[in-house]
Amino acid sequence: MLGVLKGMATTMKHALDGETFTVKYPAEEPEVSPRFRGVHKFSQERCIWCRQCEKVCPNDTIQIVMDDKRNGEQYNLHIGQCIYCRLCEEVCPVDAILLTQNFEFVGETKDELAFNKEELKNVPWYKDLDPLESREPDRSAWVGEGEGEVDYQ
């Protein structure tokens, strides 16, 4: 019987201390840590079309279309199937890709979450993020790729 009372006392203690742990989302936005990996942001100005991100992506979220002479470059992003592994950001040699802090985006169908490079310029959830400014000071914490055969292009 004593154990039962102990348990009851424990829950009552929690009820009376008035502390709550849940957050008032979406009224109050939860803080995410600086390293948080949210939705993918692609900066066309920086991209050198090396196709490393396409190659490393585990599930074909990124699709790049172009011919040998780099004509008709297309950068298609199927954000609905992104698994936020951040490998594309890690391999990108020119910091053209950034996984932002933003995790809120919606689409009514899967098709709405597929974007080509023109559409990617004005998706609402990018806000005004500059890929270079965010992620300091942690950017230096990344380690470059190892030596050896470079197998892209």
Binding site: T11, M12, H14, A15, E19, T20, F21, T22, K24
Partner: peptide, 13 residues
């Protein structure tokens, strides 16, 4: 509200 108080939650507000 009562359950929320016991479980450290806010509940309907």
């Amino acid at each position: 509200k009562i359950t929320a108080a016991f479980t450290d939650r806010i509940s309907v507000n």
